[in-house]
Amino acid sequence: MTTAQALGARLRHLRKARQLTLSGLASLSGVAVSTISKIENGTLSPTLDKVLRLAEGLDLTIGQLIGDDDSENMSPNSRFAPSREGDGIVIDTKNYVYRYLCAELTNKRMVPIHARIKASSLKEFGPLERHGGEEFLIVMDGEVVVHSEFYAPVTLGRGESIYLDSTMGHAYVSAGDRDAEVFCICTEPQRLEKDDETEPSQPA
């Protein structure tokens, strides 16, 4: 089974476990019914934007959506998860090849990603992506042009980095004659804790 097929089967299982229809998950996540259907059937590899939106729609972290259930109850204070070369969950999309590292940790506050950037122009990339949280990216090899919704494009060389608000439309494209290699850390969208959902007590 390919990674896309495995992720699709997991997404279908999680959706049905919550008794959600395709249209129900589409309403909660903002991802089109046709896109969800293709992902579940293993014919479409979802971008990070789509993965995060689907996780949020299912009220899960990205680790819980793509990771391993066995570590669900691991205490956050006992985290120690080395990642070796070749480890991780690989998702190959039109613009990026993502390698999600330490995917077995399901309740992470950060999402570490080793990626190869395939798109070489904004026209080739398509619409800007946006999702909850923030992200930090450092270029490991090649050159990257960072396009964003509100700022002029910025070119980054090897060893250079950028920190940005992921809710702002953004895209990374390779500027050189080969695919750029980057490392990115994304934070999960902020979620309200149960205690935060209650109305604060009023002074007497």
Rank of each mutant, 00 (worst) to 15 (best):
I62M: 13
R53V: 02
A55N: 00
L52F: 11
R53M: 05
S37A: 13
D49N: 11
G57N: 03
T43W: 10
L60C: 01
V51F: 03
G88A: 00
I91Q: 02
G63H: 04
C102E: 12
A55R: 03
L44K: 13
L65I: 05
A103S: 15
K38G: 12
R84C: 04
D69V: 08
G88T: 07
Q64S: 03
E104D: 15
S71Q: 13
A103F: 14
I91G: 00
E40Q: 14
T43N: 13
S83I: 07
D69K: 04
G86K: 02
D69Y: 05
S75P: 00
I89W: 11
L65G: 03
S83F: 02
Y98E: 07
P76L: 00
S45V: 09
T61Q: 01
S71R: 12
S83D: 06
D69A: 08
I62C: 10
A55H: 05
T43A: 11
S45Q: 06
V97A: 08
V90I: 14
Y100Q: 10
G57L: 03
D92A: 05
T43P: 12
D69R: 05
T47S: 10
T61I: 03
L44Y: 15
R84T: 07
D49P: 03
V51R: 01
V51M: 09
A103Y: 14
C102Q: 15
S37D: 15
S37I: 08
G63A: 02
M74K: 12
L58Q: 05
M74L: 15
R99G: 11
V97H: 11
S71A: 13
T61L: 00
A103G: 12
K50L: 11
Y100K: 09
R53I: 04
L58V: 08
G88V: 06
A81M: 09
S71Y: 15
N41G: 11
E72K: 07
D70H: 15
R53K: 12
S71G: 02
S78K: 01
P46E: 13
I66C: 00
G63P: 05
I89H: 05
D68W: 04
D92I: 08
G42T: 09
F80Y: 14
D92G: 01
P82N: 05
T93L: 06
I39S: 10
G67L: 03
S45R: 03
R84S: 04
E40N: 14
I39F: 15
K94Q: 14
V51Y: 04
I39R: 13
S37M: 12
L48N: 06
R53H: 12
V90Q: 11
G42Q: 12
Q64F: 05
P82K: 02
T61S: 08
R79C: 03
P82H: 06
I62Y: 09
K50M: 10
L65S: 04
A55W: 05
I62R: 07
E40I: 14
E40S: 13
P82I: 10
P82G: 01
I89A: 06
L54H: 01
